[in-house]
Design a protein around this nucleic acid. Structure first.
Lengths: 210, 210
DNA sequence: TTTAGTTTTTACCATACGGTAAACGAAATT
DNA sequence: AATTTCGTTTACCGTATGGTAAAAACTAAA
């Protein structure tokens, strides 16, 4: 039963697709889905638009693939590590560090995500509902348990997450503003260290942990 | 010396322009400059594209006016109130509340600003350098003075601002995600109160104020 | 009522866009 | 060597886009 479709993608093809996806991520990161053109992606990837269309038959397809790759990275770091033993302070410290590393290493991914959410998450909505929300509620419940156990002060877990997400992602999404105000051409490890230090300190003191 | 150009805009015209600017803000908030079309703005404002062009002769013109109106709102709340007497705790409390009110009352303005900054602030760059940076450095210096005076713990003032900005603006820019996760169709006053409470607590405890 | 000025509509236009069709060349399978 | 598959280029198409030109409709002062 030999099929005509989808035999086996050659390594060369996979490499080319990966190159295109990287280029597309960069383009979508700048102007979002509607603001980006296939021509722009093609140029960034170093091939013709028609050739790009050979690899990704439509802009929607391309965008969905970019988003999918981003989410694979993202979702993991959006949720706490599954370690029932871990104490609040260490868990949160690692969480903040992980999110900041994501902003440092994948700023374009963060910006594509930001574009999506800013205009109402038209594509991601269902995914966020089915995948992110359960994690979010599980982690919120865990924080509430900490409160019940007297390990931290009574605070609103949900808003704690919003604050941490915003403060860590801003180093990717708003990097241009931050660079401008710090007078730097790019953010350095030192900046991320300072951010981690301040944020961790604020959160831990704010919730009365440790 | 009667001139042919720019006599006096009639009240009706000013009203129409204001309506267009509101509509444009909403459209730009969703998809940014490149992703928005004049047709979309026209439809949102309830007139024809050609008629829209009569009021704003180009998309650039329109975008610049929208940004200008936003900045008039924005810059004020980005900086501390000019009160040399005020103690750190009360100043920061008021600052956070003010920024959150901005997110609550002008979410679209915040989102237009976010789009701009995410793709590198191509239009705003110079303005931010000449207007925001001085305020930012003045306020940072003031926080350093608090540290020198032993009023708060030694922290990095710059990153403190980044954290507050991100955490407050997220309630406008990422409202769709927050709503989704909270299971609400829109954010209510209660949510902003909780955000203000948690954020203020975290910042004040984090910097060791009061 | 005329007239000058202001809006709105109608008719276009060049370019950019996403996408199709097919020809063509390069590999690889037989 | 012949043939199939894969990759790339060339040519093209309908629509959307930002914008122009000018006629037509409306408004208000003389």
């Amino acid at each position: 039963m030999t099929e005509k479709t989808s035999r086996k993608p050659s390594p060369a093809r996979l490499r080319q697709e990966a190159r295109i996806l990287r280029a597309a991520e960069k383009v979508f990161a700048g102007k979002g889905f509607s603001g980006s053109s296939m021509d722009a992606v093609a140029e960034a990837a170093g091939l013709s638009k028609q050739n790009l269309i050979y690899y990704f038959p439509s802009k929607e397809t391309l965008y969905h693939r970019v988003l999918q790759d981003i989410l694979d990275l993202w979702m993991e770091k959006m949720a706490f590590i599954e370690d029932p033993q871990a104490e609040p302070a260490e868990l949160i410290t690692a969480y903040i560090r992980g999110k900041l590393e994501l902003s440092r290493d994948y700023p374009d991914a963060s910006r594509v995500f930001a574009h999506e959410v800013i205009n109402g998450a038209p594509v991601l909505k269902n995914y966020l509902l089915s995948h992110l929300k359960p994690l979010f509620e599980r982690d919120s419940a865990r924080v509430r348990q900490w409160i019940a156990d007297g390990k931290i002060d009574p605070i609103e877990p949900e808003h704690l997450f919003f604050c941490i997400w915003a403060s860590t992602q801003t180093y990717a999404d708003f990097a241009s503003q931050i660079q401008l105000l710090l007078g730097k051409t790019k953010l350095e490890q030192e900046d991320f260290d300072k951010a981690a230090s301040l944020l961790t300190r604020m959160v831990l003191n704010g919730i009365g942990a440790k």
